[in-house]
Amino acid sequence: MRIALYLLFLLMAIAVTGCKEESSKVNLRAEVKSDSLTNNAVVRPVAYAFSGLIGEGIEVTETITKVNKAGLLTLYVKGVNNSQGTKRFWYKVEWFDKDGLPIESKASVWLPASVKGKSMGKPVPFTLKAVAPRPEAVDFTMETKKWE
């Protein structure tokens, strides 16, 4: 009976975690984003039973795109740092034309980002900005990686 309840709890935890939708265009890697029940190496083996141990980190709350005065797509990625300490990471934005083909640019390189930790118990918001290199850019993806 206890095992069955445990399994039920496990399945519910997986379902809840799976329902949390994230922007498919901004990929926060495990070492950068807030840990979830499924991606924390420490708690993964017993993740669902110890959900209270989940870590904290960067969370993207909104992505906004606008065309600037020069006709170039400008991306704003808004988010918060849920952790207590400063979170540093690298990010790279790649741009795509209307056919989904990548636009080559010297500006699409790994750039550093740094967000202060919680202030007075509240997560610190941040905004990353990127400007498309050409007017043909209509879409984007953003990758992140751990600060080394």
């Binding site: 600037n68 020069a70 010297k106 390189v109 790994w110 750039l111 550093p112 400007v131 290199p133």
Partner: peptide, 16 residues
């Protein structure tokens, strides 16, 4: 150099 070039170009283009 990659980082500086990227940030400089983006700033130039964003400024109009």
């Amino acid at each position: 150099f990659d980082q500086v070039a990227s940030e400089m170009v983006q700033s130039m283009l964003a400024s109009g």
